[in-house]
Design a protein around this nucleic acid. Structure first.
Lengths: 338, 338
DNA sequence: ACAGTATGAACGGACACTTGA
DNA sequence: CTCAAGTGTCCGTTCATACTG
């Protein structure tokens, strides 16, 4: 067994530099009232010892950990890991670290548990990524810690950042309609997903506004496999000439099913995806889709949270930031056949 | 501004329960020598007050945070986010939380910085995901904190968990050779990637052992775009009948480029990928690839780390766990033309 | 002597004061 | 009276030790 490694303390640095621990504290916190010559001496003593302020001790007295909690149910969803990455970077540049927890399920109870685990760890604020509270929509979290919700259900009382699903889904649907399709089918994400519901709603209203018939919504689970399964059914209906799919993965599966049934994309059927994952331009055919800026979402979450931290909790009630998506037209959409 | 929220302390609970704070501490830590009746009284007092032990104070005295640090350069790589997810889950069930940091670059300096940031935060152990130290391969991390390296350069002195790249790459290459191809080209990942180098090495030695000619290695950057660019060049060489691509994303781009050049997969060229991302079975054609079990890697990392924590640091020198990948044969590989 | 409980250090750092020029 | 540097007490827990019926 290696002997226990004892990290150097303020006192050790102070001793080496020949000053009091208070002065070391001042240097560490970049206070003004310390002589430049002394400062240098302390700094080099820190260097020599490899001193790192003990965050536990600091947090104990300041009450702040400089740590952000992130609750994310699934990292396998493309958008979530991108958002997390952006959050991590933004937090880091602001001098915060990120504490990640995944709730056991998407129930209010599990959420509350994850939440209190985080507050118990002493986080200064919490970001919930794509938080769907399935069983109890109006979850009241214990207050005291600022919260920001990313791409989640905004029925709540917390500020939120969201990709503007309405704009994206409308652009997708309108693009297809503009190409001359009589109407547009919709393969949606799971019904319990807030984003999926928003996309479906915008698709619906765009159709309505255009006076187009509204086909029954189809539901997948975001996976390529579910897109494939639905695609097989859809391929049998020759009326289907345009499908707006709620994410790129499902679109991939759908296209495969259509092709296998002898229906070419975009010749017979136009397909549009959502997300614009880095691979979608290399699909066969290259996928027309809606680009989402997850990096921006992550950055916004952090800055909103930091604002709350700085100015007291939730200055102006329910704040809501929207990030605008962008239609990316590639080769999976075309005018209808004949 | 809302009034400052002051969390209840041990002392508050003690006062309410009519015991000393010491007793509360015993209850919180599930010590034996507490009267059951007293214990219940304390427990309900905790309930009422919503007491959560202050982890800063606890960590200050115990020196342990029950927190694992994870260093991951990029979460956009499929494998990394999967591994992280698994780590997070495993850590959670063991009662640990996860502190995530992304180093600014893959240099020894940035790594050391990330590392010391984590130790400063008081993590009990650190997992480095896909840690390539580019400028200074034999990075000596300050000791005192157990470390496990996942899918990284094992020249180091830390236990590591790795997908067995040799087995996977050999299986891929042998599969192609077995189909009757005279030899197999290789589109590798970036040269600074340890995994990429391992795959290339195994491809090389498999070719050698079979007495097959060894074409020059091609290098991509893991992205579909780079696979596409290389694919355009490769398509011109009619000798190319089989390509082993170091990941599925690049394989997607490569196939697109081949198709555009009029070379059908697998009729004219066989392509095999690596990773088995969930979408690869829905590519056109469905991609033959090598499945990696990232979940297992994540779990192993945590259990190795926890072992070190329990039994003192690094019981038996350099430990190395290997997770065996699996060849998944789909439809992008076939015997060579003619 | 024994169960259970109370007591007073630390732990490392920040902050309000105080002191010395 | 300003500016640098030092002193003392506290943050919430745990642990060793002393205490009590």
């Amino acid at each position: 067994m290696t002997e226990t490694f004892k990290p150097p303390s303020q006192a050790d640095v102070a001793a080496l530099a020949g000053v009091s621990s208070q002065t070391v504290s001042r240097v560490a916190n970049e206070r003004s009232n310390v002589d430049e010559e002394t400062r240098q001496r302390v700094l080099s003593a820190m260097q020599v010892l490899g001193y790192r302020p003990n965050s536990a001790a600091r947090a104990l007295v300041t009450g702040r950990f400089r740590m952000l909690g992130v609750i994310s149910f699934s990292l396998s969803a493309h958008g979530n890991s991108r958002t997390l990455q952006a959050i991590s970077e933004a937090a880091q540049t602001a001098g915060y670290s990120v504490n990640l927890v995944g709730p056991e399920s998407q129930t209010g109870g599990a959420m509350r548990k994850a939440f209190s685990k985080l507050t118990g760890q002493g986080v200064d604020g919490i970001i919930m990524i794509e938080a769907q509270i399935l069983d109890h929509p109006d979850l009241r979290l214990p207050s005291g810690v600022p919260v920001v919700v990313a791409d989640g259900d905004p029925d709540q009382l917390h500020p939120s950042v969201d990709n503007n699903q309405a704009v994206g889904a409308e652009a997708a649907t309108a693009h297809l309609l503009g190409l001359g399709h009589r109407t547009v089918w919709h393969l949606a994400g799971p019904q319990d997903s807030y984003s999926a519901r928003r996309r479906a709603a915008a698709w619906f209203s765009t159709l309505k506004r255009a006076g187009a018939p509204v086909p029954a919504v189809l539901y997948g689970d975001w996976s390529a496999g579910s897109g494939y399964a639905i695609g097989r059914r859809l391929a049998e209906d020759k009326d289907v000439t345009a499908v707006f799919v709620a994410n790129d993965h499902m679109a991939l599966g759908l296209i495969k099913a259509l092709r296998e049934a002898g229906r070419e994309v975009p010749r017979d059927v136009s397909v549009i995806g959502y997300d614009d994952i880095p691979e979608s331009g290399f699909f066969h055919p290259p996928l027309t889709t809606v680009h989402q800026d997850f990096e921006e979402v992550g950055r916004l979450c952090v800055s909103l949270l930091l604002d709350q931290l700085a100015h007291g909790h939730r200055p102006g009630g329910e704040e809501r930031s929207m990030v605008t998506p962008q239609l990316v037209v590639r080769e999976s959409t075309a005018p209808p056949p004949r």
